[in-house]
Design a protein around this nucleic acid. Structure first.
Lengths: 211, 211
DNA sequence: ACTTGATTAAAACAAACGTTTGAGTTTCTC
DNA sequence: GAGAAACTCAAACGTTTGTTTTAATCAAGT
């Protein structure tokens, strides 16, 4: 009958199923069945499948973006106060670390992270359009601050390097522990902090690569 | 009536539509309509939608993998002959350059490249399964040779760095000229050779990042 | 010209899809 | 307690989907 958390259950289940199966390959019936709510609840609470997706993304992306934006601005302000250019590692730490924190099981957001990773791979489809409405300002800001941090690198080169960096990061976001090919003697079950450091090292080296 | 190139048209159109719309969001009717062939032709020539996808991938991935495998082995053999470790840039040039060549309009394979980029983002769904059947050996080989080229970097670290590199590359493969966010003053319409160099620089710097 | 195998076509099948509808139930406010 | 708003439910709607079926047509070989 009446359930106090229908909307929440739909969001949680949709997050998981969209992440593991993809938006288009996940039906509303699969979601509502897993959430143990009625099919019509989706349209009642959200209006449409796409709106459900948008709600799934907005509930975590909003707070995540606030954190990242704040941290980016702190780095920028510190640089201004010191009359220096922004610290590149601090910038990308501000962008990457809160994001990968969502990878921790305790965050309850690991599927969300995977979903966002997939969104970043969407070729201008519905996922990407929804996502960009919420992300463009942050991407722009990150890029501009990175340009300030690396004044000797042409803007165009930096654009592509940032593009590559987003690619690495989103690839990691998607994979969780689902790494498709595991070589011998490699333990893929690795600590979040360690992998964050590795990604930062890799990204920083790439961004700063000699011309 | 009888058309000499029904199968080819299906492959071409499927490649394009799967690449631009995604596998699940592209119907067989959309493909057959665009190819101007009958719906039953898909099942007649390929057996199923998934088999069509597999054929789409195999027709270019097979030859591409032969080229890449040959070039990788050349680098490896040169190193053995000289009693040295393999040259890292040569390895990744062998892997990346033939791949990004497909980005050229003249190759007729730009949609294929985008499709493979999407496959690399698939979370163990049908796309990834089809793909891995054709790609695992090459990935393994690339990883092992990269380990040989960088003996001072722990295997596990290298695994993740290669993972990041694949992420960058696939992100680039997917995007073509569809870059979602274009900052001011950046020309995203860039020469293939230039962008290949940029990706190689970025990737090499990341792989070789100091510990 | 006939036969056989390959190919095409339209229709059908069974299932699935997102959305809508209208009735019933629950919750909230006065 | 009554009424309104919020919520749930099952059925229905109209459409779409991948696959199958069967007959017709084409192409190649004898």
């Amino acid at each position: 009958m009446s359930q106090p958390d229908t909307k929440q259950r739909l969001l949680d289940v949709a997050e998981r199923l969209f992440a593991t199966g993809g938006f288009h390959a996940t039906s509303l019936r699969a979601i509502t069945c897993a959430a143990e709510v009625n099919l019509a609840a989706v349209n009642y609470h959200f209006g449409s499948k796409e709106a459900l997706l948008e709600a799934v993304m907005a509930r975590r992306l909003g707070p995540l973006n606030v954190i990242r934006q704040d941290r980016l601005e702190q780095v920028a302000q510190r640089a201004v106060a010191e009359g220096e250019k922004p610290d590149l590692r601090a910038l990308w730490t501000a962008f990457i670390t809160p994001t990968l924190e969502l990878r921790r099981p305790e965050s309850g957001a690991e599927y969300f992270l995977s979903l966002i990773g997939q969104v970043l791979a969407d070729t201008n489809g519905v996922l990407m359009q929804v996502f960009l409405r919420q992300m463009s300002p942050l991407f722009q800001r990150l890029f501009e601050l990175t340009c300030q941090a690396l004044p000797g690198v042409p803007r165009q080169t930096l654009f592509w390097r940032v593009h590559f960096a987003i690619g690495s990061m989103s690839h990691l976001m998607r994979s969780n522990d689902r790494v498709p090919v595991k070589p011998e003697g490699v333990d893929t079950d690795v600590d979040i902090d360690a992998i964050t450091e590795m990604l930062l090292d890799y990204t920083l080296a790439g961004l700063e690569a000699p011309l």
